[in-house]
Design a protein around this nucleic acid. Structure first.
Length: 273
DNA sequence: ACTATGCCCTGGGTGC
DNA sequence: TGCACCCAGGGCATAG
């Protein structure tokens, strides 16, 4: 599942290949109509055709392509989406849902087994991000911000971390990893964490995201970078999908439970309430 | 404003 | 081998 490090890796891969290029043709394939969440698929295809990409940005898990008509093409890969740059004559992958042919003989393929990915156009990127808080790697995501956000929640701290209003870009993998690094039981009510533990959690969020970014993301299942390659970070995680294995810090057992209706992994030995 | 639940979607895994 | 289930979960809508 592409979270912040994965989406940022894709952005860095694709930016030099997309910026300055114009879109020659767009095809949303039959059966994938729900990719276009606001406009009808044919309208979105038409609106993108002929546009030049002026910049490729990211906020949380959203990719934001700034177009030469001033609008922003907002893309979210959700669970199983990937966005891969290939030659135009490359055979479609099994789960290709859409393709964008560029003016240089290359194309961008959206592969998405489960069809949760979304594309839409907005006049202002800000309007599409209004339900989303500060990006977890930005300066706006400060210790003070996190402390204030957690202080008004009684839900488990993991549920708070998954809320994109709190920390945009953090998903299930890095929420578990951040709790482990900080030594916090993910089930702990958010408002019970003291200032020192919140500060540790904030540092842990930054640490796990940056480590994964350095490894070009985690490929537990479908994630691929902008060129179709897997990330490397899934072999370096501490708890995510390591249930039954020994904790690398205390030797305790990593267990799996459910928190906020999500599979949640933590060490029974060294993560405290 | 927060919290909990169901929905979307489909391949892969499990149990019989 | 076949087949019916169950699971994975990001973001949104909805109800409380």
């Amino acid at each position: 599942m592409p979270e912040l490090p994965e989406v940022e890796t894709i952005r860095r891969d694709l930016a030099p290949l997309l910026v300055g290029r114009s879109i020659a043709r767009v095809r949303i394939h039959p059966g994938a109509e729900r990719l276009a969440v606001t406009d009808a698929p044919r309208e979105l295809e038409r609106a993108l055709t002929g546009r030049r990409v002026d910049a490729l940005d990211r906020h949380g898990k959203y990719l934001l392509a700034r177009l030469d008509d001033g609008r922003t093409w907002v893309m979210h890969l959700r669970m199983t989406g990937s966005l891969v740059h290939t030659a135009a004559d490359t055979t479609a992958a099994r789960f290709e849902r859409a393709r964008v042919d560029l003016d240089d003989g290359n194309s961008l393929r959206l592969n998405d087994m489960r069809k949760f990915a979304t594309w839409h156009l907005v006049a202002e990127a800000r309007e599409a991000m209004r339900r989303t808080g500060p990006d977890a790697l930005s300066d706006e995501f400060s210790v003070a911000w996190l402390r204030a956000a957690l202080a008004r929640r009684s839900a488990p701290v993991k549920a708070a971390l998954l809320d994109q209003k709190v920390a945009a870009g953090v998903g299930n993998i890095y929420a578990d990893e951040a709790c482990w690094i900080a030594g916090i039981d993910p089930r702990t009510p958010a408002d019970e964490l003291g200032p020192r533990r919140v500060a540790r959690l904030h540092a842990a969020i930054r640490e796990t995201l940056e480590q994964s970014l350095g490894d070009r993301g985690s490929s537990f299942s479908d994630y691929r970078d902008g060129l179709g390659a897997e990330g490397l970070h899934h072999v370096n995680v501490h708890v995510f999908r390591r249930e039954g294995q020994a904790c690398g810090r205390c030797g305790g057992t990593v267990v799996k439970t459910r928190v906020a209706a999500r599979g949640t992994h933590f060490c029974r030995g060294c993560q405290r309430r």
